[in-house]
Simulated scan of single mutants.
Amino acid sequence: MPKRQTNKFKHKIDVFGNVAMVNELNEKSFRFEKIKSIWSDIVPQTGSLQKQAADTILANVTHKIIVRYSAGKIITKDMQLHFRGHKFDINYILNPYFKNETLEIFCTEVVK
């Protein structure tokens, strides 16, 4: 199997995580805040449109986002990835062949 070329990571994505904060009522709540930016490769996988009630359409687009292992090892399933105004929810994270070289993050795009 050929080695992955490191110059393939040409898209800079932002990693957002749930950060605890105290609101004005002194209650603990969570909100997404940017944790870091990393270089990645974004590969579209599948897409589908589903017609819902009241003539609304639900778009389901999935992507595979590949990052270096050292940069992405802090990423967990409860985080979000942002790229040029697109938001991605993480479905699962795969470490191919357990080589600790890259992480493949399978995501669903959040369509507003």
Rank of each mutant, 00 (worst) to 15 (best):
V61K: 12
R84A: 09
K3R: 11
H86V: 06
C107Y: 07
I42P: 13
K3F: 08
G17V: 07
P96D: 06
K99Q: 14
K87M: 11
V19N: 03
S40F: 11
K36V: 11
N26E: 13
Q50Y: 11
K36W: 05
I66R: 08
G17Y: 02
F88E: 00
V111A: 10
E101W: 11
K8W: 03
I75V: 06
V61Q: 08
I66A: 02
K64Q: 06
F32Y: 15
I65P: 00
I65M: 00
V22E: 10
I93C: 11
L49N: 13
Q50P: 01
F16K: 14
P96R: 09
D41I: 04
K28P: 01
K87P: 02
I75M: 05
P96H: 12
I35S: 02
M79I: 11
S29C: 14
I42F: 15
T6K: 15
I65K: 00
A71I: 01
I38M: 08
P96T: 11
R84S: 10
N91C: 11
N7I: 01
D14E: 14
I65L: 00
H11E: 09
I65D: 00
I35C: 00
R84V: 06
H11K: 11
D89E: 08
A71N: 05
T56V: 11
K10M: 03
I13T: 03
V15A: 01
D55V: 05
F30D: 14
V15Y: 03
G72L: 00
K87A: 13
G47C: 01
I42A: 15
P2C: 05
G72M: 00
N18Q: 09
N60A: 09
C107E: 07
E33Y: 02
D55Y: 14
G85L: 08
T76G: 10
T62L: 08
H86E: 13
E104C: 04
K28C: 04
H86R: 15
Q50R: 11
E109C: 06
A20D: 07
P96E: 07
R68F: 13
H63F: 01
N100V: 10
K51C: 00
